[in-house]
Write a protein that binds this DNA or RNA. Structure first.
Lengths: 213, 213
DNA sequence: TTGCGTACTGTATATAATTACAGTATATAA
DNA sequence: TTATATACTGTAATTATATACAGTACGCAA
């Protein structure tokens, strides 16, 4: 990750502040006025370089087309990966297809470096099938997107357009999805039905409410 | 808080999704195209009403001047307040004064409505003293700022400039801070030492990494 | 029925904002 | 020295976008 020059940092900082404060990104002219540039081409030059270094994305031809991709916090050198924004794309065990055409309802932001590298998304948990490992209704499960998981790992699995969070075991002839709650039976999927299931990812984190504690 | 009509809700939803996805709010025309409106004045009418109901703010004369003020989730009637950004202001049980002049190291963003109303901050947990209730090193404890807690609640307590997370019990002559781990002894504070302790808040949530699961 | 708010269409105009082209100045590395 | 990248100025053209005005249609409450 290349570093910004101090001028670029100032411009980038102004863009993020404007976007957060006003709700809309600034125009080139607004940036120019802020920094007393006589020509907006000074701004264009800056934007080009800031974008090249990956901090923003510029949408050509679109007004205010400056999309902030990183936060200033993520510039700390000791942090390798960053994923502030984790989209919450639905409820798990609540009947809705995932991934395809997913529009995020809301977002979660975790501290830089809290999770490892990878693609993450989040699902709100409904049901008690994993209560023995302290995952309960209302919690938000953070899932690392991966298409396989190791035996025994907790995975978000999609079966028949429903997403469920289960402990995953693959045997030679079947897949077993085990609950962490004796009230819920294990789900056994014979090899012939593999085409109906899909692994969405692996449980990577959990956001819990502590109302009782 | 007035409710949106279903059409308005659709338009509002499109605006929030566009803003989150593209990083910039949509233009009137982009909205019109999305909903197959032949005239952007249909959009203008919608925006006027959505803004009137407080969901967005329209910046007149500015392109893409649609600022989202609420999230769709906050429309659930049972949710009163929202607080996306929770500052992480230090480590708990790690010797550092809290609250005064606290500069946040990083921020946490939880879904709107996930927590109740109140002032929140977060602390990174070090140590295993609460492992029995699944709070472990590296987790991030979300604390609701309050100066008293009820008996038995888990509280962030400051003693001698160190913050600790303990189960709080107040008796007539003493305060006991109990760990949720038999390896750690309870801390007993006699009435005469009350001036040395302070309640920072009550445990409200927990963000956990699930590396093992 | 009348009136009112929501939900649109259509066209024309004004202005907001980006792009293009042609430069200058100042560092810093080869 | 000669590049090469950053950091700007200036003007003109073009396109993107919002606004203004004039309507139509429908449901709903008085």
């Amino acid at each position: 990750m290349e570093n910004l020059t101090s001028k670029q940092k100032n411009v980038f900082s102004y863009i993020t502040k404007h976007t957060n404060k006003e709700g809309i990104p600034p125009t080139l002219d607004e940036i120019a006025v802020n920094f007393n540039y006589k020509s907006i081409n000074a701004v264009r030059d800056h934007l080009r370089l800031i974008a090249k270094k990956g901090y923003i994305k510029v949408h050509p031809g679109k007004s205010r087309g400056i999309q902030v991709l990183k936060s200033l916090n993520s510039m700390r050198p000791e942090q390798l990966s960053c994923h502030d924004q984790i989209p919450i794309i639905g409820k798990i065990a609540a009947g809705a297809p995932i991934f395809v055409n997913q529009e995020a309802e809301d977002h979660l932001k975790v501290p830089t470096g809290f999770l490892g590298s990878g693609e993450y998304f989040a699902l709100q948990v409904t049901g008690d099938s994993m209560k023995n490992i302290n995952i309960n209704t209302g919690d938000i499960a953070i899932i690392r997107h991966q298409i396989t998981v190791d035996n025994g790992e907790v995975a978000a699995v999609i079966l028949e357009n429903e997403a469920t969070l289960k402990r995953f075991f693959k045997f030679t002839d079947r897949v077993e999805l085990q609950s962490e709650n004796p009230d819920f039976p294990d789900i056994v999927i014979p090899k012939s039905d593999y085409s109906h299931i899909r692994i969405a990812g692996k449980l990577a984190g959990l956001l819990t409410r502590k109302i009782d504690a």
